[in-house]
Amino acid sequence: MTGFLQVFLDGLSLGSSYSLLALGLTMVFGVLGLVNFAFGDMIVWTAFLAVELTSIGLPLPAVIPLTLVGSVALSMFVGEVVFRRVGTQNPLSLLLVSFGLSLVLVALAVQVFGELALMFPSPTALNTVLQVDGLQISMLSLVNVAVAAVILAALFVLLNRSRLGLALRATAENARTARLMAVRPKSMVRLSFAITGVIGGVIALLWFMKVGTVTPRSGLDITLKAFIALVIGGLGSARGAVAGGFALGFAEAALASWLPVDLRGLQQALAFVVVVILLVLRPQGIGGRLLDVSR
């Protein structure tokens, strides 16, 4: 029973990170059709920003908001300068462009920060591990879950209870008709990149506080996780992204604790195997239709 609860806790913590990742991707996919291969690398750049801000002596309470602002700025900049210039909403062109962007971001990061891993600022308070009845959970995991809950709730309210959210969903479904309701697709794309930027900033902080170090090549792992969660959930569905993220989180936690030790290295592969099987059974993913695209 304790074992099961422990897996549940671990899964919850992992799953909340993965849901945020998948949500970040799905927001932009909904309105622009972009599955952003460079998402992880943008998060890495944001993490480097946090490292740099810390190294010039800023305290964490100042680093956090500045990092978020930086992340939003980066995301909107990339959206404006790279992705909107593609001139089409075609997923394949956009995917290829994001692939190119990923290369550029990694190469530039290697150039600027070097190949060596840099320490990520991580307050000791967050690294304490709470022990209750044989269960272990780190403060950081709790923070992770709490932050994810807040963001999910905020996004839910935004998408379902505000005109802006309605406009975003309407654009995702049918941009042309949404324009007749005075909704500018351009603004919606900007909005989605801004939201993704916030999510990316939060992930950058939480993810690398957990990992402890950041390298220019850390992004691929993040992107892969986000992709798996996204595809499990079904492209373009916000609800699906959340479901997919938690599904991946629980699956990983279960695999980590119940898989024979000599198969541990196959975790990611097994996760993808699950995705493949799932997609064969249900090509549209398990997602609901919250931010669905009819395309």
Partner: peptide, 12 residues
Amino acid sequence: FTSLTVEENLLI
């Protein structure tokens, strides 16, 4: 908009 409810369609 099929992914929006009837009321949301009106509100938009």
